[in-house]
Design a protein around this nucleic acid. Structure first.
Lengths: 132, 132
DNA sequence: CCTTGACCTTCCCGTAACTGGAAGCCCTAT
DNA sequence: ATAGGGCTTCCAGTTACGGGAAGGTCAAGG
C-alpha cells in the first residue's frame, strides 16, 4: 500500500503518517523506488493511533498504548492506569473551561452590545479587585 | 518598577512579560542601566492581559481587547463580538472533551485493571468497526 | 517517444505561547 | 574584592503537526 491509500483508510493525513514514521511510531518498508510500502499491520497500527488520538491521548501516551497492545504479557491494569490518568486530565480541562464559560457568559450577558463605549467585559478585565 | 515587582503584582512570570514586550503588547521604558522601567499604566495593562488570558482569550484576542479598552470611541458591540466568539469556541471544546470523557470512562469502567492482558480499552482502539 | 498530471520523496519553515538555560552586566552588602 | 541576587539578551525546546518548495516516479494519452 502507498501512503495515499493508508491515509484514507486510517483517516490520518499523509503528513501525519510521515511524521509518525519520523518519531518511530510506525516503520513501513520501502519499495525499490523509495516509496513507503505499508503492510496491513502498519495500517492497523495507524488506525489504532488515529483512534487513540481522537480520544485525546498524547503522542507519548499513544506510544505506550501501542507498546502495551503489542505486548502479550501486559496487564490490563497498566492500560487502565494510562486511561485513568488521561481521564483525569480531561476532567480537569472541562472544569477549567466551564469556569471560564461561566464567567464569560455572565459578562457577555451584562454587556449591552450597542454603539456606546461602556462595557462590563472590559471593566471586569481592567478593574477586578486589588492587584498585588 | 523593575520586572520582579511587576511580575508579582500582575501575576505574570517575568519571562512572559518580556515576551509580551517582544510581541508589542507592552512598551515599558528603559532605565539608564538597561533595566525595564514599568509605569503604573504598564502594570495595569499587564494585569488586564493576565485576566484576559485567564479567561482563555488568545494573545491576538488580547491585543484586540487592549486596543478596544484604550479606544474611547469603541462600541461595546465590538467587545461583545470578541467575547461571544470566544465563548462559542469554549463551548465547542467542552463538547469535544465531554464526548471523549464519555467514551473513555465507559472503557475504563469496563476494564478489569488486573494482571491479565485482556483489555476492552485496547480492543476498542484496535478493533472499532470497519476501517476504510 | 514525449508530455502531462497525479503521486511520491525530502527538507525546511511556521504555528502558540511560552519555558529553560547559558553568558554576562549591574548593584548592594560584607 | 567578592558573593549574591536581579537584570539583560539570545538560543533552543516544547506539541503535533501543516504548508510549500524542489525534484523523482509512474500510468495514460497523443
Amino acid at each position: 500500500m502507498n501512503i495515499a491509500e493508508v491515509s484514507t483508510r486510517s483517516r490520518l493525513p499523509a503528513k501525519t503518517i510521515r511524521y509518525y514514521e519520523e518519531i518511530g511510531l510506525v516503520k513501513p518498508l520501502r519499495a525499490a523506488n523509495g516509496y513507503r510500502a505499508f503492510r496491513d499491520s502498519d495500517l492497523h497500527k495507524l488506525a489504532f493511533l488515529s483512534r487513540a488520538r481522537a480520544l485525546g491521548f498524547s503522542i507519548e501516551d499513544c506510544r505506550t498504548l501501542v507498546q502495551l497492545y503489542e505486548d502479550p504479557a501486559r496487564s490490563s491494569a497498566e492500560v487502565k492506569a494510562v486511561a485513568e490518568a488521561h481521564l483525569e486530565e480531561i476532567a480537569h480541562k472541562i472544569a477549567d473551561l466551564q469556569e471560564m464559560r461561566a464567567t464569560l457568559s455572565t459578562l457577555v450577558t451584562a454587556c449591552a452590545g450597542d454603539h456606546r463605549p461602556g462595557c462590563p467585559i472590559l471593566e471586569s478585565l481592567a478593574h477586578r479587585d486589588r492587584e498585588g
